[in-house]
């Protein structure tokens, strides 16, 4: 018998199983660590928690209120559009910048070598994003109720919170798509390249002329905003300013279909690439 045969016969086959309660705990710890880390990163937490509420109160409540000449229809519209804006940032920047940096600095490689549950890297960042989106929604709702006097039902508040918190996953997919491709240095630039046109083309803050309104269909944020408007029974800025246009024909089902499709395509493409990296 050769030495090689002896060694092969002695080869262990000893994988270690872990109770599912412990696996869930690992997922929980990853999500907790990611959220703590995001909260302790001032360049992340301050703009994405602070900007939506400040801009909503200044521009969405006071400025829009003074310019609307008493047209109360603008009140719920502003709440929805600033909510859409508020949930865009954490996912896009959280995934785009953190993934690019962790990939480049070897952390992702270390985590892949360690027995980290396979999906927990992405799920933890998704949980962190949804937590931030929820905090944004809570601050915006507080402002809407006490300062903006937005008169919608509690059910509608809950519905739009659910839509926007779940909708933040779309921006996670966009951010991840960038994060697995861009270097740590170029990621912020690429995220902004996606973030700014997506925000402005979604028709969130000002009406787009009817001739260029079809451009709104290329912005995924547009569909989330439309869905939010449907949920609270509000009209888009385009419709309030210029009357019914191409965007007025979007039904909630069409919006959900587009949002789910774009999220899945970008998310699957990115996670496939993520699995190959290391």
């Amino acid at each position: 018998m050769t030495t090689a045969t002896v060694v092969l016969e002695n080869k262990l086959s000893s994988g270690v199983r872990m109770p599912s309660s412990q696996v869930w705990r690992a997922y929980w710890m990853e999500a907790k660590s990611e959220t703590i880390r995001a909260c302790r990163t001032p360049a992340f937490a301050i703009p994405f928690l602070g900007m939506p509420i400040v801009f909503y109160v200044l521009l969405g409540i006071f400025l829009a209120g003074s310019m609307s000449h008493g047209d109360a229809r603008i009140v719920p519209t502003m709440f929805v559009t600033w909510a859409t804006f508020g949930v865009m940032g954490p996912g896009m920047f959280g995934f785009g910048m953190f993934v690019a940096a962790e990939r480049e600095q070897g952390l992702l490689r270390l985590k892949r070598a360690l027995p980290m549950p396979t999906a927990s890297y992405v799920l933890a960042k998704m949980a962190m994003t949804m937590m931030f989106a929820l905090m944004v929604m809570i601050t915006l709702i507080a402002a809407a109720v006490f300062i903006g006097h937005v008169r919608i039902s509690i059910g509608q508040y809950l519905l739009i919170t659910s839509i926007d918190v779940l909708g933040s996953l779309l921006f996670c997919a966009v951010g991840l798509y960038i994060g697995v491709r861009a270097s740590a240095k170029s990621a912020p630039a690429f995220v902004n390249l996606a973030y700014l046109p997506m925000m402005h083309l979604a028709g969130l803050f000002y009406p787009l002329p009817k001739s260029i309104q079809p451009l709104e269909f290329v912005s995924p944020a547009f569909y989330l905003n439309q869905l939010g408007l449907h949920a609270v029974g509000a009209q888009s800025i385009d419709a309030l300013s210029l009357g019914a246009g191409p965007s007025s024909h979007m039904t909630p089902v069409m919006c959900i279909a587009v949002l789910v499709t774009v999220t899945l395509i970008l998310g699957m493409q990115a996670t496939r690439r993520l699995r190959r990296l290391g």
Partner: peptide, 14 residues
């Protein structure tokens, strides 16, 4: 992952 639960890893650049 059952195999990797047996190992610890220290990488040079992480």
């Amino acid at each position: 992952i059952e195999a990797r639960r047996n190992i610890g890893v220290m990488m040079q650049e992480a």
